[in-house]
Measured scan of single mutants.
Amino acid sequence: MDVCVRLALWLLWGLLLHQGQSLSHSHSEKATGTSSGANSEESTAAEFCRIDKPLCHSEDEKLSFEAVRNIHKLMDDDANGDVDVEESDEFLREDLNYHDPTVKHSTFHGEDKLISVEDLWKAWKSSEVYNWTVDEVVQWLITYVELPQYEETFRKLQLSGHAMPRLAVTNTTMTGTVLKMTDRSHRQKLQLKALDTVLFGPPLLTRHNHLKDFMLVVSIVIGVGGCWFAYIQNRYSKEHMKKMMKDLEGLHRAEQSLHDLQERLHKAQEEHRTVEVEKVHLEKKLRDEINLAKQEAQRLKELREGTENERSRQKYAEEELEQVREALRKAEKELESHSSWYAPEALQKWLQLTHEVEVQYYNIKKQNAEKQLLVAKEGAEKIKKKRNTLFGTFHVAHSSSLDDVDHKILTAKQALSEVTAALRERLHRWQQIEILCGFQIVNNPGIHSLVAALNIDPSWMGSTRPNPAHFIMTDDVDDMDEEIVSPLSMQSPSLQSSVRQRLTEPQHGLGS
């Protein structure tokens, strides 16, 4: 029994001894940790006062410096006190997940390849973020970090730009207890964004957000305005092209109309020559008939004078003969009235020469109109080809070629109108001259024959008349068809009918 009691006491004593040793060891460790923490804080404070003595007594600045020092320690893998190029590049790629850190790398180092804690602190103090207000930090939280649900907490804590380094380091107390961020992804996102802002300055999105919006609005307005302008120009170009094509079609119709007119003019001239020949034959025939009538009257007179026994018949025959003579005298007077005045042959040749010289100047004017028309046609064809290209319509709308071609078409039409008026006036004037003179002027042997017949020096006439060419005029020349008939041919039928009527009546009387 005593043995059992003793054994229990030994065990209890051993447990108490072991517990005492454990408590003693724990207290010694706590004392050691407290001592090392105090030494670390003293070291940080001493270093901060050495680097930035004016701010070393500010608790907030001291906390920010400690956060900057921890960031530098995080980047300094070899713990030599300086962050070199390789260490910063590795940190950007692995910790901040930048696949192309060239720009960030140059911004961080600049011309200094080794970055110490002092360099990093001075860079942070010179950053724009260091002077941010609470509102600017909240704006950064909303737009860049995209965590607007913590806006009220940031405003309540009055977190300005000075506190940004403390957000950039992993601090459970700061993010969990103070900021009350329960979501781990939110804490990590805030820490990475803050670290990027401390090292490289304010984000471009935050700094140029309004400018970007303004430029976007301006670009949209310019784009819409450009599209509207292109649409208006395209519609104007199509309308202008439609008008130009309509004018061009009018020129083609006028060309065909003048071609038909020239054919009718040539045909009328041929008919005029035929009528002139018929007139000469008719006059000769009338003279022959008059002579035959005179001979017949003389023969009847002689027969009736030789027959004294038939006085009654003779008297009747003499009366008939007197009627025939009276008819012959009237026919002769009618014929003489139409051919009583004949212009000198020299006057006819001079008038024919005048007509040919006028035709020369008319042909020159006509050729100029043809050239203008050809230029207008070529310009229209070029515009047609340009319209078939990809940007042809837009190019035509913004060039002056369309207006130039339109002006050329209008100029050609005006020139053709002048040529039309000149042709109309010339035909009418020479027709009236032919009526008054009674001989042909338009139809003549040609300028060379006339110059030779009148003994004129050929050098006075200049160049010879160009051959009539096919040219274009407007449709108002169609009503000239009825005026192209020679006035002499219009007189011939009346002359034929009057003479024939007077010759036929006596012959019928003789026949009876």
Rank of each mutant, 00 (worst) to 15 (best):
S88K: 07
E94R: 14
D84I: 15
E66T: 05
E90W: 01
N97K: 01
M75T: 07
H72Y: 07
V68M: 14
V85L: 05
V85R: 04
E90K: 03
Y98N: 06
Y98Q: 13
L92R: 14
D77M: 14
D82Y: 08
N97D: 00
E66R: 08
S64F: 10
N97F: 00
L92S: 10
L63I: 00
N80K: 04
E86G: 07
D76H: 04
D95R: 07
E90Y: 09
F65G: 07
V83N: 14
G81P: 14
D84A: 07
L96D: 06
D84Q: 15
R93S: 11
H72K: 13
S88F: 02
D82F: 00
L63S: 00
F91R: 15
K73Q: 12
F65E: 11
V83D: 14
F91M: 15
S88M: 07
D82N: 09
R69H: 06
L63A: 00
E87I: 09
L96Q: 12
Y98F: 00
A79E: 09
S88L: 05
I71T: 01
M75H: 14
D77N: 00
G81S: 08
F91V: 06
D77F: 05
I71L: 03
D77K: 09
E90S: 02
Y98V: 02
G81E: 08
F65W: 15
N97C: 01
V83M: 09
Y98T: 07
F91W: 01
D76Q: 12
S64W: 00
N97I: 01
D77S: 01
I71K: 10
E86Q: 13
D89I: 01
K73I: 06
E94A: 05
N80W: 13
D76P: 12
V68T: 10
E94K: 04
L96K: 15
D95E: 03
V85S: 05
G81H: 15
R93V: 12
E87D: 12
V83W: 12
D95N: 01
I71Q: 11
S88V: 03
R93H: 12
E94D: 00
F65I: 07
L74V: 07
A79D: 01
S64A: 05
E66C: 10
N97P: 10
D82K: 15
V68P: 02
K73G: 06
F65R: 07
G81W: 12
N70S: 04
A67M: 12
G81F: 13
A79G: 02
L63G: 00
L96T: 15
S64H: 11
S88C: 02
E66M: 01
E86L: 02
A79I: 04
E90F: 08
R69P: 04
K73A: 04
D95I: 01
F91D: 14
N97Q: 00
D77E: 04
H72M: 10
L96R: 08
D77V: 04
S64T: 00
R93A: 11
D82W: 13
V68Q: 02
S64V: 10
D89A: 05
Y98C: 04
E87A: 09
V68K: 07
A79F: 04
V83G: 09
D82R: 14
L96H: 13
I71Y: 14
E66G: 03
L74G: 05
V83L: 09
D84S: 06
D77H: 08
N80L: 11
V85Q: 01
D82L: 07
N97V: 01
D78K: 14
E90T: 01
F91G: 14
K73Y: 09
E94T: 11
V68S: 01
D95W: 00
M75W: 10
D95H: 01
L92P: 07
R93Y: 07
E90N: 08
